[in-house]
């Protein structure tokens, strides 16, 4: 269903956040990163993507946030065909999607606070609110003492948390997290998951790509396993 018109978009069932139909992504010359993925993620769901390295998890997340375009198939986010969106519409949708990239994409020459603030600045939040949110987030992620540190000087685990803070800072409706706990100890991992769970409880849809069984085995979530770019299994965790 092509919905470029926001009025039409409202008619799409509100409870579907991501809809992928037969999506493929190939890279030149002949690498098939994803093939024939069909998938629905409900609004408010916390959804896990697992699979070995190179299975296509990152590619899938990049397709959802329109950083990459699919070679084939249809992707709708919040009822919008995300690949038909341009200019202002695309920008506004992206403001509602928070992404923590696997490679962080932090600005290494800026402070931690500035990096976290960027996501809010582009949607013209007022400076005072921005400062407050940044402080709160850094505290939740145990980065308070790094507030004014240049991001390039942080450890990878710290950078990872800064990336996460930036992803959730603007209170996005959809949060995509790529490998959020790869460099973290158990305690910090739990803090990160607590933060994400809180966001999930307050209504955000969250998709997490991970290798870390400890975070997806708890709780009651759907887990999609990719293998060589294809859906291997879709299961539900029934942990404590």
């Amino acid at each position: 269903m092509e919905t470029d018109n926001p009025i039409e978009a409202l008619e799409v069932p509100e409870n579907t956040m991501i809809e992928m139909i037969k999506v493929s992504r190939t890279y030149v010359p002949d690498i098939t990163a994803l093939s024939d993925i069909s998938l629905t993620v409900d609004t408010g769901e916390m959804f896990f993507l697992i699979g070995r390295s190179g299975a296509g998890k990152t590619t899938l997340l990049k397709l959802i946030c329109n950083m990459e375009v699919p070679s084939n198939g249809l992707i709708e986010v919040a009822g919008y065909n995300i690949n038909n969106l341009k200019g202002k519409r695309l920008a506004h949708l992206r403001q509602k999607i928070g992404v923590a990239y696997q490679d962080f994409k932090l600005l290494d020459d800026r402070t931690v606070a500035e990096n976290v603030a960027i996501a809010m600045e582009v949607s013209y939040k007022n400076p005072q609110a921005i400062r407050q949110t940044v402080r709160d987030l850094l505290e939740q992620l145990q980065l308070t003492d790094k507030h004014n540190t240049i991001t390039g000087e942080l450890s990878r685990g710290e950078q990872q948390r800064v990336a996460l803070a930036r992803a959730v800072a603007n209170s996005p409706r959809l949060i995509l997290v790529d490998e959020p706990t790869g460099n973290l100890d158990a305690n910090t991992t739990e803090r990160v998951m607590n933060l994400l769970n809180r966001r999930n409880k307050s209504g955000a849809t969250i998709v997490i790509a991970t290798h870390d069984p400890t975070i997806y085995q708890k709780g009651n979530h759907r887990i999609l396993e990719l293998r060589d770019g294809q859906i291997h299994s879709l299961t539900r965790s029934n942990g404590s």
């Binding site: 946030c65 200019g87 920008a91 949708l93 509602k96 999607i97 994409k105 600005l107 960027i118 996501a119």
Partner: peptide, 16 residues
């Protein structure tokens, strides 16, 4: 370049 790319990714409008 990196910064401007990032701005686009986090939803900065073209006029921003």
């Amino acid at each position: 370049h990196d910064e401007l790319e990032l701005l686009k990714l986090v939803g900065a409008t073209n006029s921003y």
